[in-house]
Amino acid sequence: MISRRTFIPRSDLPVAAARPGSGAAGDRSPKEPETATRRDVIAAQGPDAVAMTLTVNGIARMFEAEPRVTLAEALRGALALTGTKIACNRGTCSSCTVWLDGTPIVSCMILAVDVGNRAVTTIEGLIRDGNLHPAQAAFIGHDAIQCGFCTPGMVMSCAALLDRDPRPTRDAVLAAISGHLCRCGTYPHVVAATLAASEEAKS
């Protein structure tokens, strides 16, 4: 039996920021349908780059990007925040996890233009008053890292869990990281680190 992973040809590697001017533009810009004459119709934006403002790690950041640019691409490209990693680019590995209004989401599966005024927090924004987040400190203390590619995303999920529930059960930790794939198999150390961070919260 062949596996789903080997079946679908994946020639596409993670793309960086969008290339303005690429792709067949021409007559692709849509017209507003005649039936939609109501005053609340917002004009369509794009397909060329549009001005966007995103609140990232508490700071309003302005940049231009095409509507097709994902949040992950915008973070790594226009905003130069490369702590967020893109691996599968299909929402199936969670390495690109960031917070939207404090909740972990996969940034590769949401368009930057769709974020609106929701607050984005990335791994770069986790330090508070110069101190590592307890999850970050615990990952270091428990050596919950090997190649490190999945680590920023793992940390974002574990930190969100600890912020929400400072004393999570082991099952809660497993549920929080259930979307993450780690090629190196750091899972036991990740779970130990997160439970240890919760121990510290208790004392």
Binding site: D40, G46, R68, D114
Partner: peptide
């Protein structure tokens, strides 16, 4: 991903009117 334009209407009626397919 190919290029596309984007709109975010604030009423059901306009969204439905736009959704030609």
């Amino acid at each position: 991903m190919k290029r596309f334009a984007w709109t975010q209407p604030t009423s059901l009626a306009s969204a439905a009117a736009f959704a030609e397919t």
